[in-house]
Design a protein around this nucleic acid. Structure first.
Lengths: 199, 199
DNA sequence: GATTTAACTGAACAGGCGTTTAAATCCAAG
DNA sequence: CTTGGATTTAAACGCCTGTTCAGTTAAATC
């Protein structure tokens, strides 16, 4: 034997992913070259292929990691009432996405650059996430606590609304993240027709 | 003199823009080559330069046309009440965007591929559109008909929610466009805390 | 200090990129 | 039918693309 596995790869590997994440988010997958990513890491383009089989897989892994992390971090507690679950979901979505603006951007913008198999995988994870919210809404409707027209439509409307926050929220702006979370909780609560929603 | 101006350009010009619109929407600006656009039109790449000074301008013109058309088609009638204006805004946004899925896609996804000056122009048009909704909400708040936390936040939330429709709505699906418009009107009405909103 | 091998370089590959330009083509007016 | 300008082609420009690979470097083990 000799050199222990990953004497530099422990460092370079993550750096490659970080650089790719930032550059893909900033300029788009198709507009970023492997040489640009390599330059950001301080390495030649060929060295990247120690860490990914190709550019497409690099994108796919970034998106999958993001979605897996999203699903893992979300705690689903069906013991509490639907309105409380909804409130938690809203706050979780906003804070989780705010902490990873680049990954969010990529996950929503680069879907069309995924090869069919990879697209199907990411799409399945995304639907899984949507289902969590949909289940909350349906539970609320079944319990007579919510009143929405079509549950699926309401689900997609709420997620679109929440994800939009990442595109404009700046922590040094007029409102704190907590302020924004509070307002979105109120808006979503009203949107689903919860009794306490309207003042 | 000879051939009247634009004997073929009347045909080729629009075809170039149509092909570019579709291809940019499908694959992304950076991933589409001038040769691909030319092939779609049935022409050599060089011929495109009779219709656009360069690729960047082709993208910019598509986006600007979309935004200008959006602002032009919207009829602002401040004589009616804020809730009615809001209802009309929601229905208009959904149907206008549904009729132009490719242009919508480009207008929201290709902003980062615009050069600074072009970006500023599109951004200004977009803010102009947002202001229309914001004015409606503020009028409603001032008249005691709406109750939102921060008006700007509510504006962005509603627009994000409405624009999201384009990503999933299919006319051959479970719901008609009218159904979707109805449900979004109800959700938005409740979201802004209008009195009749909650059942 | 010799050996081993992970990590990386640098050059090369075939092909595509946006754009330019001279020459060819086309067609309506004279 | 000739003419002349609008329209398009075909080829070329220099540069960049993702990926491969033989060769170099350097660190950890013996």
């Amino acid at each position: 034997m000799a050199r222990t596995a990953g004497s530099h790869s422990d460092i370079t590997g993550p750096r490659v992913r970080e650089a790719a994440l930032r550059l893909f988010a900033r300029h788009g997958f198709a507009a970023v070259s492997m040489r640009q990513i390599a330059a950001e890491v301080g390495v030649q383009a060929g060295a990247l292929y120690n860490y990914t089989p190709d550019k497409q897989t690099l994108l796919f892994e970034l998106m999958r990691n993001h979605m897996v992390e999203l699903l893992a971090d979300m705690r689903r507690d069906s013991a509490v009432s639907a309105p409380v679950q909804l409130d938690r979901f809203v706050r979780f979505h906003i804070s989780f996405h705010h902490a990873r603006p680049d990954a969010v951007f990529i996950a929503y913008m680069e879907l069309r650059n995924l090869e069919p198999d990879n697209f199907a995988t990411i799409e399945a994870l995304r639907r899984q996430y949507e289902t969590v919210l949909e289940d909350i809404l349906r539970a609320g409707v079944d319990g007579g606590l919510f009143d929405v027209g079509d549950t699926k439509v309401a689900t997609l409307a709420v997620i679109a609304m929440l994800t939009g926050v990442t595109t404009w929220f700046r922590p040094d702006g007029r409102l704190s993240l907590g302020d924004v979370q509070d307002q979105y909780c109120q808006m979503v609560t009203r949107l689903v027709g919860a009794p306490g929603g309207s003042v």
